[in-house]
């Protein structure tokens, strides 16, 4: 198990460095001179030169690259062009809010999807299954920002059951905070649970066809014991791996959902950075989101290895 984890951590480091490289290269996408792009046509040559120095693009590209990787490794992601604040500091202020949303929605989607997926598989090709599979298909197809906007409209604006978007932190008022986090979590979880439900259903269907399940039934176990004791553990493995694959969708969805509900996470930083052409901020946030995706994937892989000894051996 030790070597398995060590190997996964090694690939994590490589992936993070590569992600850093892509983020570095993104600045090269800017057509023309990025410094001129930020400052606009009216800026003087001196100002542009100063901005080029600020962005570090006045030096040869290999030097810039070495610098970028070295400072990123020390968690230094530069300073914002607009506010002059440290990018990593701004990210640090918000990252826990984003993580809270992500973790809660993963938990909620597992709670929703695993039992429902199991039921759909047990009732395969009957009315319950068709209903659940159709719901999952709808959940998969309706984008998060549509679900979120509609939920906000119904619960916060029409019925006024849940408050609308004035952020209260957990330490100030736990109850208001919980009320506030319900809608964004639900929005993210609905789409995610649709994917998990479909995976759970097909994985369960694979497993119940196995011989040992027939043996378990033949020796007279109740259907509940067969499902819980014999099939669920084997069926859950592919579901764990789909949670990893979905991490990237979830973090993408998070950006939009945070924006809808005014959640003070990474998204507001990213979007305001994009709109004001604050390139260091955009690069910093994109890198952190990529790193989060990679880390979640590795954690899921390790969990997968813990659950299934066969994976560790490969």
């Amino acid at each position: 198990m030790g070597t398995f984890i060590a190997r996964r951590l090694m690939t994590l480091v490589v992936q993070v460095i590569l992600a850093g490289t892509v983020v570095f290269l993104m600045l090269r996408l800017v057509p023309g001179d990025p410094a001129r792009g930020i400052l606009g046509e009216t800026a003087s040559e001196e100002q542009v030169a100063a901005m080029r120095q600020n962005l570090g693009i006045d030096r040869p590209i290999y030097e810039q690259y070495g610098d970028w990787i070295a400072s990123a490794a020390r968690l230094d992601l530069g300073t914002s062009i607009i506010s002059g604040r440290s990018v990593i500091g701004d990210i640090g202020d918000r990252i826990m809010n984003s993580m809270e949303l992500i973790v809660l929605s993963i938990v909620l989607s597992v709670i929703i999807a695993v039992p429902l997926g199991t039921i759909a598989a047990i009732r395969a090709n009957r009315a319950t299954d068709y209903l659940l599979s159709t719901l999952a298909m709808i959940g998969l197809s309706v984008p998060g920002f549509v679900v979120g906007t509609l939920l906000l409209l119904v619960f916060a604006l029409k019925w006024r059951i849940l408050p609308q978007s004035v952020y209260v932190s957990w330490s100030d008022d736990p109850v208001s905070h919980l009320k506030l986090i319900i809608l964004p979590t639900l929005t993210l979880a609905l789409g995610n649970s649709a994917v998990i439900l479909r995976m759970m259903r097909s994985s369960m269907l694979e497993v119940v066809r196995q011989d040992y399940v027939r043996t378990a039934r033949a020796k007279g176990l109740s259907e509940f014991r067969v499902i819980r004791g014999h099939t669920l553990r084997n069926a859950i493995n592919p579901v764990v791996s789909i949670i990893g694959l979905e991490a990237s969708t979830l973090l993408g969805g998070m950006v939009i959902v945070e924006q809808i509900f005014n959640w003070p996470g990474l998204s507001s930083l990213l979007i305001s950075g994009v709109l004001s052409r604050d390139y260091p901020v955009v690069q910093g946030v994109v890198l952190i989101i990529a790193v989060l995706t990679i880390v979640i994937n590795v954690l899921v892989d390790i969990t997968y290895g813990l659950l299934d000894p066969r994976i560790r051996m490969q």
């Binding site: 590569l18 950075g273 994009v274 994109v286």
Partner: peptide, 20 residues
Amino acid sequence: DLFLSFPTIVLAIAMVAFLG
């Protein structure tokens, strides 16, 4: 693989930011 490690929408947002 490298491109797949970025969330699609985040990659798209970043590229729009830099390309205009």
